[in-house]
Design a protein around this nucleic acid. Structure first.
Lengths: 216, 216
DNA sequence: GGTTTATGAATGAAAG
DNA sequence: CTTTCATTCATAAACC
């Protein structure tokens, strides 16, 4: 169990009363649910085609297409893919702790295909390879390792993400002026006791290459 | 995984297990969540002041300031801004790019494969101009705050870093193929008077001080 | 009808 | 900066 100590926060009920204009009953049901045709198409994309990383453009395209089968928005498509990927990943991860005896390992291929029946699960996805120490760098580690591991798994059709620019222009980035964003003066007038917390933070953040170059 | 049962349907509280003042075991919950005051301040900076590109120094400063409202680290502030920017931008981006989806030809079933398509559907436009939460059908966001500010105040009324960051450049995006994912041509059949005529207005009530104030 | 499950939605964190 | 991963919240549908 987890001690959920919470009581005083504002409860931001995140609601999404967006009425796409074609909603069935605003207020009664504000959560999107795929219609059968929509679900079939989505699954077809995901499983049959191994289409798992739609670009924003493709998301829109899919969404547009799906609109003829019911109200839907881009974000629904987006989340659908995200969730499906995440949950499959999660399932695999659970599996890795094989309670059955000894060691073992990959054995992936448990794509559940529920209602539609046509999911074939060609698991040749695009870039798979999580599960092998995905975390190797700290948020602000001191080395921008450009050794991007091969993401090219073996896409048969095309790359789902073609463009790339990534111009890394690291600039010196000038410090600010005297006053802080809150309007206070940061004149170290804390009583001479040294200005606290800038012991580690400063250099960690700076290598993030803020793209700018300005000065007042 | 452990099925976290526990209280149901009554806890609308988001996920802020960490509250200012009394923090609990950091081992149970490792993910930072802004406390209401922190969130208010951050949003105030971002939306109300248009403060979107904090320098590392400013991040420190903000963090320092926010520490009185709960445990927080620099990287949290950093990520917060970065995520918000990214998600807001993605929204805008999808809004303006509706180019050829061009990709993949999927045809698993329905959709007559009218091969060849060159589906250029740009400009399915309905609304132009992204002043205030222009898009509700984007993957992200949707303004979760019920109590605080409105969302999105435009995208740039003031840059605190001089440079011109958000240059809206319509990326070229060379199409790869013609047909869309479904093999159809999307002929801009948006004439249907619109499923998404949503006009989500979001007025932004400006708050006066980002200093304190307890949450309700 | 209360509980469990599946899944949509949100967002912090991280990778590239 | 852009995209993806991980975790959690929320909720409707399924279950008992």
């Amino acid at each position: 169990m987890e001690p959920r100590t919470l009581q005083l926060m504002e409860q931001q009920t995140q609601q999404q009363i967006e009425d796409g204009g074609n909603n069935q009953a605003a207020g009664t049901n504000n959560r999107w649910a795929p219609t059968p045709p929509q679900l079939r198409i989505l699954k077809g994309l995901y499983y049959d085609k191994g289409f798992k990383y739609p670009t924003p453009e493709q998301i829109q395209e899919i969404c547009l297409h799906l609109k003829q089968y019911g109200q839907i928005e881009d974000k629904n498509v987006f989340f659908w893919f995200q969730n499906l990927k995440a949950r499959e990943r999660q399932k695999l991860k659970e599996f890795r702790n094989v309670p059955v005896g000894g060691s073992l390992d990959l054995n992936f291929g448990s794509t559940s295909s529920t209602d539609d029946g046509r999911s074939i699960d060609l698991n040749f996805g695009s870039r798979v390879g999580y599960g092998v120490d995905p975390y190797s760098s700290s948020p602000f580690n001191t080395n921008t390792s450009t050794t991007s591991f091969g993401t090219t798994g073996g896409q048969s059709f095309m790359e789902q993400r073609g463009g790339d620019h990534q111009e890394i222009e690291t600039l010196p980035l000038f410090p600010m002026h005297g006053e802080d964003i809150f309007g206070n003066m940061k004149t170290t007038s804390e009583g001479g006791s040294g200005y606290d917390g800038n012991s580690r933070i400063s250099l960690e953040l700076s290598l993030n290459s803020y793209k700018d170059a300005d000065m007042a």
